[in-house]
């Protein structure tokens, strides 16, 4: 079973995402900000991260840059999930290392498809780098 870490300061979003991801057969871990998320990743690196952008303590993009700098961080599939919908802002998330981007609100089908798309993108990127 793959592990997905949900990083979001909203307990409601974490709960909704957990329900969807567990139905998709993910083993789910949670963190409420970037610092907590880094601690989880340092202990056990997940296969995927569903990442909110704006959070207290450490925001999503800062976490993402630090994750990618970790020894196993390059292999993790990351889907940024935010209510930001401007092209320039989405571009910033991709430049920071996101594989995919979900605009809130989302539903089960969208989240499922985006995680698959992100995993596909990450695999091809790692293949190209090898």
């Amino acid at each position: 079973m793959s592990t997905c870490l949900i990083v979001d300061d909203s307990r409601v979003i974490r709960k909704v995402a957990r329900r969807i991801l567990e139905a998709l057969d993910y083993d789910v871990a949670e963190a409420a900000d970037g610092v907590e998320a880094l601690a989880v990743c340092n202990a056990t690196m997940p296969e995927a991260v569903l990442l909110d952008w704006y959070m207290p303590v450490m925001d999503g993009l800062e976490f993402l840059r630090r994750l990618r700098a970790l020894p196993e961080g390059e292999a993790v599939t990351v889907v940024v999930c935010s209510s930001e919908t401007e092209i320039e802002r989405i571009g910033q998330a991709l430049a920071a290392g996101a594989d995919e981007y979900v605009m809130k609100p989302f539903d089960t089908d969208i989240l499922h498809a985006k995680i698959q798309e992100a995993a596909h993108f990450r695999e091809s990127r790692l293949r190209e780098a090898a």
Partner: peptide, 10 residues
């Protein structure tokens, strides 16, 4: 968001 990868959307 149904099927369109984010890079292609952008």
């Amino acid at each position: 968001q149904r099927g369109l990868p984010i890079r292609q959307l952008v």
